[in-house]
Amino acid sequence: MAEAPPRRLGLGPPPGDAPRAELVALTAVQSEQGEAGGGGSPRRLGLLGSPLPPGAPLPGPGSGSGSACGQRSSAAHKRYRRLQNWVYNVLERPRGWAFVYHVFIFLLVFSCLVLSVLSTIQEHQELANECLLILEFVMIVVFGLEYIVRVWSAGCCCRYRGWQGRFRFARKPFCVIDFIVFVASVAVIAAGTQGNIFATSALRSMRFLQILRMVRMDRRGGTWKLLGSVVYAHSKELITAWYIGFLVLIFASFLVYLAEKDANSDFSSYADSLWWGTITLTTIGYGDKTPHTWLGRVLAAGFALLGISFFALPAGILGSGFALKVQEQHRQKHFEKRRMPAANLIQAAWRLYSTDMSRAYLTATWYYYDSILPSFRELALLFEHVQRARNGGLRPLEVRRAPVPDGAPSRYPPVATCHRPGSTSFCPGESSRMGIKDRIRMGSSQRRTGPSKQHLAPPTMPTSPSSEQVGEATSPTKVQKSWSFNDRTRFRASLRLKPRTSAEDAPSEEVA
């Protein structure tokens, strides 16, 4: 009796068929016929556990003709996506030579605008209408194809895939403007070719909807975003200037109206006075309405000098805001240009540092100066060695804690006790272990408590650290204090090793 083939788990290929790579489910599931010992083939499952149809090819690079078809379809799909992405970037994010197409579109729109203006002049109306009709045909074809291509290429973005995504893309403001202008152009052409009475009025009214094509030149909205950011950044200043200017306008108009309503027919109503105030304070000055009385002229002159300053403030605020924003954008561009080279330089330096163990090129690091100058660790070890030599091999803490019996001779020589300023008595072995921070803190506390006492003391002649007598400086308080830590004499004296002298005989010792 033939044995059933062993159940295979995992992703390994079956024996005897090495080139074939078959994806098997996580659990080997066989058909009921196979479990019962029949000759049925096992049921194939996909990666998600769903059964595959009987005629479906197995996924994998070596699955025969199905694999070749899959490779061809995958390559075609990649080319399709690449083309779609390229078209989308050309239309929505132009760079380099892609601006040539947008310059061509701008020339078409500008020519249409010029011809629309010439069509309103009686001398050039006939020729402009003929040229404009031909140009409209060209623009309908160009913009119609462009609109379709834009909607198709938007599928390269995830949020615009599918018919719902394309509809979302078509609802964008600039796409809506394109659609309105396209419909208006078709209506103008249809009305112009019919030759009816309505054609002339339709051409004159709907052609100027094509002015909206100038708005579509900035599809990404960079200028509007820049203007919005400047207004938002200086909103408080703008609101303040406009508010005060509006108050000056209504008060000036009302007072001039009261002064001129009886003697001047131009100011017969408050609305006429508001019109005069707006034209005057905005420095336009049509001259259609002028005050005639001396009181009205004085009020107009005073409020004009006051109001023009507030009406001119928004222009200066926006101008300075634009300058600052442009400078910030230039700085951001320079930062973006330098970020990648800086990151590459840091990575290269780290690779060199991690692979080169000698690091002989590091001549400006802490390790280099640590090898030249005595390190703080060596100074600490030197302090501890000196203290243990004086205390008979014991550390200062051990000397303080060691009990001394009554009447027993002390094995240590008597030492002079010292007192730290602002604290109780402490171990004499710690007097010379006072660090730089303690010395600086002690000097600052003395300056806070009594700076007036220092200038009363007789001035001391500054001497070099080499000429100081070591026996005289029994305490860190003898170090000359200065008002600034930048004094080199104080810094050098604080680094010197001060020996400890006994109370009975204080021989001067120098520590090399």
Rank of each mutant, 00 (worst) to 15 (best):
G62D: 07
S63T: 12
L48Q: 14
I189N: 00
N344D: 13
A56E: 09
L23V: 05
W242C: 12
E22Q: 01
G64C: 13
I140L: 14
A315T: 04
G228C: 01
F208S: 00
A36E: 08
I148F: 05
M340L: 04
T278M: 00
T27P: 08
T223I: 00
T278S: 05
C157W: 04
P59R: 09
A28D: 07
N344T: 11
S320T: 10
R168C: 11
G12R: 10
Y232C: 02
F179C: 06
P42T: 10
G64A: 11
P51S: 12
R81H: 11
W294L: 11
Q347R: 12
L52R: 14
T200P: 09
I197L: 00
A184T: 05
S31R: 08
G55A: 02
F179S: 14
V87F: 09
P54L: 08
H292Q: 13
V181G: 00
V141A: 12
Q332R: 15
G302V: 09
I211N: 00
V24E: 05
Q30H: 01
A191S: 00
A18G: 05
C156W: 00
Q125L: 08
F99V: 01
V90M: 04
I197M: 10
E130G: 14
W86R: 10
L133F: 00
D266E: 04
A56V: 11
L47H: 11
G64S: 14
R43H: 11
T27K: 07
V142L: 08
Q332K: 11
E35Q: 08
R44C: 12
N344K: 12
D178A: 00
P53A: 07
S67Y: 07
P15T: 07
A4G: 13
G66D: 09
L127V: 06
L91M: 14
G96S: 08
A187S: 01
H334Y: 13
R95G: 08
F99I: 13
G192S: 15
I308V: 10
F303S: 03
H124N: 03
V176A: 08
N129T: 05
P51T: 14
A2V: 10
A56T: 02
Y80C: 14
S269C: 00
P59T: 09
I180T: 03
T200S: 14
Y88F: 03
A304G: 07
Q122E: 15
Y80S: 15
V186L: 12
W224L: 00
H77D: 11
Y232S: 03
L26F: 07
P173T: 00
L247V: 06
L306V: 10
M217T: 00
S73F: 06
L108P: 00
A202G: 14
A252G: 13
E126D: 10
V29G: 06
F179V: 10
Y147H: 13
A300T: 04
E3G: 02
G12A: 05
M139V: 02
F251L: 07
C69R: 04
R7G: 09
S73Y: 03
T193A: 01
K172N: 01
G192C: 15
L26R: 06
K225N: 00
G302A: 10
M139R: 07
D218G: 00
A128G: 05
A21P: 11
A323G: 15
A301S: 11
T120N: 01
V298L: 07
M214V: 00
W242L: 13
K325T: 01
A21T: 10
L132R: 00
G38W: 08
A271V: 00
P5L: 09
A323S: 15
I308M: 04
Y88H: 09
P19S: 13
I197S: 14
I177M: 03
F104L: 11
F208I: 04
P13R: 09
G55C: 02
H77Q: 15
M206L: 04
I180S: 12
E136Q: 00
S268A: 03
A170S: 13
V29M: 04
G144D: 02
V181L: 15
P6Q: 01
P341S: 15
A263T: 04
L209Q: 00
L83M: 08
P341Q: 15
Q164P: 01
V231F: 00
P13T: 04
G70R: 00
F110C: 06
H124L: 06
L145V: 09
R204C: 00
A187G: 09
E92Q: 01
V326D: 12
S269T: 08
E126Q: 03
P51R: 08
S63P: 13
F335I: 11
E123G: 01
C112R: 04
I317T: 15
R171I: 12
P341L: 15
S205G: 12
T278A: 08
H102Q: 13
G144S: 01
Q71H: 07
C69S: 03
P6R: 08
S31N: 05
A98P: 06
K325M: 00
A25T: 01
K325Q: 07
R171T: 11
V141E: 00
M206T: 00
P173L: 04
P57A: 08
G12C: 05
L47V: 12
I317V: 12
F322L: 01
A259V: 01
R20H: 08
A98V: 10
M214I: 03
W86L: 10
G49D: 01
P51A: 04
L118M: 10
R82H: 11
G46R: 05
E126A: 08
F99S: 02
G37C: 04
R219C: 06
C157G: 11
I148T: 05
S111G: 12
Q347K: 14
D178Y: 00
A190V: 15
R213C: 00
L133P: 00
K225R: 01
L299V: 01
L295P: 00
I239S: 00
A128D: 04
Y80N: 10
L255V: 05
R216S: 15
S50N: 10
C112Y: 09
S309A: 05
H330R: 15
Q210L: 15
I189F: 14
S67A: 04
V215L: 01
E130D: 09
G55V: 04
S268Y: 01
C156S: 15
Q210K: 00
A36V: 05
G38A: 05
H102Y: 00
Y101H: 04
E32A: 12
I197T: 10
L203Q: 13
K261T: 15
E35K: 07
F254Y: 11
T240I: 00
S265Y: 06
P54T: 05
G12D: 09
I105T: 10
P14R: 03
S185T: 13
L113M: 02
G195C: 15
L11M: 01
A301V: 07
I197V: 09
F311Y: 07
A190T: 11
E22K: 13
L133I: 00
R72S: 10
